[in-house]
Design a protein around this nucleic acid. Structure first.
Lengths: 126, 126
DNA sequence: GCATTATTGCAACACAGTCGCATTAATTAT
DNA sequence: ATAATTAATGCGACTGTGTTGCAATAATGC
């Protein structure tokens, strides 16, 4: 787990993710924190949490990195064959249950698959 | 096709993609152009080519947008269920032939799937 | 050739994310 | 409990990708 101290900021970040129940960008995360936390600190916390297998990250629209709590990851390596969904209307991002069938390639060795499905979420289709 | 003029820069960009035979970021593209072309111009050309269905774009590592020539796209809409592969060692990005099986979701309507496979390419495995 | 207007280059900007460094605070040893 | 250690933080400056307004340039149609 590396060296860690149980700081207030760390708890705030984890609480935010638990309450959100979805993926958050650094920006969205900061907006959800009850007290202001420095931008650098937030990025550093996210990096650490990712290293420790607590959250995973992936890219969504507009070149923005999203983070979400991991369910099946260990520190030794992230396992993220599950897909992510982003709504083109409200931009919300969620982790999906579905695993993605990673094609077998003879020219390359695939270690990881990042899958982002885009479309409309239930709320925005009404 | 919108309104277009056959400019030297446009030809240079298209030639670069044809010669590259792989996906390029704006940065990589500029490095491959025989004469210097302004950064804004390059981005504007890429936007236009994407609108016209000539190239498609997707995000790779480090939040960098890559572009590649389209083979089956029309102006009316891009079709990109094929996957992309990026090598973790040399960072090269290529389009794969394989189509991706997009899972069926009852909570969302999926319009598009962005799939980035990451690992090691043949050249880097030696 | 001339007029029209798309394209270009420039400079300034916006934004996500990073880094060095001095300060603060969580943990450990005494 | 107090002091020492060092991880975590905040700040400011910075990097890199991508965008935008505007004046100058050049491709096209006549």
């Amino acid at each position: 787990m590396g060296v860690h101290r149980k700081t207030r900021n760390l708890e705030l970040v984890l609480d935010a993710f638990r309450n959100a129940q979805k993926a958050l960008s650094a920006q969205l995360l900061m907006e959800r924190l009850p007290t202001e936390v420095n931008r650098s600190t937030v990025y550093r916390l996210l990096d650490r949490l990712e290293d420790d297998g607590v959250v995973h990250s992936f890219l969504a629209s507009e070149n923005i990195k999203f983070y979400a709590l991991c369910k099946e990851c260990t520190q030794s390596g992230h396992v993220h064959s599950h897909a992510h969904f982003q709504c083109n209307s409200c931009s919300q991002v969620v982790c999906l249950e579905q695993d993605v069938v990673v094609p077998i390639l003879n020219q390359h060795r695939v270690d990881e698959a990042q899958v982002l499905l885009k479309g409309q979420c239930a709320a925005c289709m009404q």
